[in-house]
Design a protein around this nucleic acid. Structure first.
Lengths: 341, 341
DNA sequence: ACGGTTACTGTAAACGGTTACAGAAAAAAC
DNA sequence: GTTTTTTCTGTAACCGTTTACAGTAACCGT
């Protein structure tokens, strides 16, 4: 058995069809006319030989990878399923490939970044922990990228797709206060530099103020937008002897809400009677939590889709009027806030 | 502005450091000794120039892509989050990249398959709809691949990682019958050629037979392991005037369970009083559904992890004793089957 | 002092495509 | 019937690495 080259190259195809490699290449890429007879012959030869162009060779020669990268912090959250779904739909339709990488600390000073210009034609960036200067350096060479759930730093002009957080959170907290009479509302932060989290906190604080309720630092915990962490944090908080009184929790997102519900339940607190609970995202399971979760419906799949479309817009030098797209959100009232359901 | 080549190449590095490109390459890949002075100089020059090796050139020359592909049907299911998570952890630790593609019909006769040998060093395959002959042709050239949640066809020897389905489903149905006195148990199939679904159905039928309950074709529906589809199917079934009596549903998986719960609820059926419901996978939300879902805990993240490790085993020519790994599963009793909770 | 390793380095040929350039033949324009 | 354009094709350079081959210098044992 010949060890070398089990793979058939463009030269094999050319020889077999009696044409030059240039012609084959042109036919494959449809970027120059080819006579009908040759086309037919090539079709036959290529399927016969099961020819598949070697991606790397193609990339090297054409300077295009036909790959876009998705950079994210982790893959713990059910939130990513609709997001990925939206992204994938566009990518596939464009005949591109998607490469997924997680960001972690040593990404910055590492000399082999998992994804970047050497690898991809453009990047979708969903990563807090990526600071403004990181973005600046990535963006420096004009490498196409689109931010997801994060707006660009003022100095940079990077397209961005996100959802409305502040007003909707404000409304939600208003609802807790005005409709259900809650006044001791806990807020679970997301990851430290997560923008959604920061904005939701803004909305939360604004609503407290608007309703004349003093802000209490003791009512802020960090749930990290993760089930397990939210659970642990809440569990520890409740286990604490001298715990602060509270009658509602804004959990940050639906995933954290699951953890919170479990912790409350285990400590014998009734939702919504003792404690109202609200989430964010309206993930598929939200209507079936125990009790059904009041939450904010965020068009996550659309975010993915639109972000991907923007990226292709960049790749194709198309223009968009607005740089930052903020998709509208909507409150879904269910039982967990105290509504009748 | 110079349009061409904003990127610094290995030649730039070589020139700047006063060595040959071969030396630079060897230092980068650590596959031949380099004098300490040169090493130091290279370090400096490379960070100074922000040199990042061009992936495609590397792939082309070395015949290795340092990429593994994940082929799956769709991205609708929350099930994929833990799976992806397990896979990603291993991939990253190996310094590889992960490229995700969805399988659809025209994958087969298409001449530009999204992922394959031209693209990746190996494949993780989670895709029903991929028939034995597809697998055979993909596997023909000895291209490394590992099957996920699917055992290889008898003629092929492809490593595979899956979970135990038959016995556990048998036990679960036994439980419904013997403990909760259910006798009209509906079964929701998954996607047509999904192996988990087929095995669960085997367990289901075996349990009926073992308990002397005749199998009723009318109690079989197709939920496709998807929330929305399961909901629609169940909704239509319940809306049907002359509907068949049933007192339990094995929903196939937790995602479908969500849809079923919603449909039952909307039609005024109480779970578990009127209808017992059980799922499969024990996804993160299962304990918080309404009511908490009795389900089977499947070690999905481990499946991902182990599958990825297997694949690297193949890439590194390591040997494993067993070709098919079947991870154990475990029933988690909660309220939805009728247990007290 | 001498042959044999070992440590390090460079030259140049791949790897498998794309594409600028050039040219021939056929079609269109005059 | 010539000129011009259009359609189609081929040759060969290039994309940025790796690596076989070859070679030099230092080290080692005797």
């Amino acid at each position: 058995m010949t060890r070398r080259s089990s793979s058939v190259t463009i030269r094999d195809v050319a020889r077999q069809a009696g044409v030059s490699v240039a012609t084959v290449s042109r036919y494959i890429n449809q970027n120059a006319p080819v006579s009908p007879e040759v086309a037919e012959r090539l079709d036959k030869v290529m399927t016969e030989l099961r020819y598949v162009p070697h991606a790397a060779a193609r990339h090297l020669a054409s300077r295009k990878t036909r790959v876009v990268g998705l950079l994210l912090n982790n893959l713990h959250n059910d939130f990513f399923v609709p997001l990925l779904n939206g992204i994938e739909a566009v990518i596939r339709q464009k005949g591109y490939n998607l490469i997924v990488a997680t960001y972690h600390e040593d990404y910055r000073n590492q000399m082999n970044p998992p994804i970047g210009p050497h690898n991809t034609d453009g990047l979708l960036v969903f990563a807090d922990g990526l600071f403004d200067e990181d973005l600046a350096s990535m963006n420096a060479s004009g490498f196409p990228m689109v931010l997801v759930h994060r707006t660009p730093p003022p100095s940079l002009s990077i397209p961005s797709v996100t959802v409305e957080n502040v007003e909707i959170t404000h409304k939600l907290v208003d609802h807790l206060i005005q409709v259900h009479g809650r006044r001791r509302i806990m807020f679970l932060r997301g990851p430290v530099h997560q923008e959604d989290s920061a904005r939701r906190e803004m909305g939360y604080k604004a609503a407290l103020q608007a309703n004349g309720i003093p802000f209490d630092e003791n009512l802020i915990l960090s749930g990290d937008f993760e089930r397990d962490i939210a659970y642990q944090v809440m569990d520890r908080f409740l286990g604490n002897g001298n715990r602060v009184a509270f009658d509602a929790v804004f959990t940050g997102d639906d995933d954290a809400a699951i953890g919170v519900l479990r912790a409350l339940h285990q400590h014998g607190l009734k939702v919504p009677e003792d404690v109202a609970v609200i989430g964010f995202d309206d993930l598929g399971f939200a209507p079936f939590l125990n009790p059904p979760l009041t939450t904010v419906r965020a068009p996550t799949e659309s975010v993915g889709r639109i972000a991907a479309e923007r990226l292709f817009g960049l790749l194709e030098n198309r223009q968009f009027d607005e740089e930052v797209v903020v998709l509208p959100t909507e409150i879904i009232f269910r039982r967990s806030c105290g509504c009748s359901y």
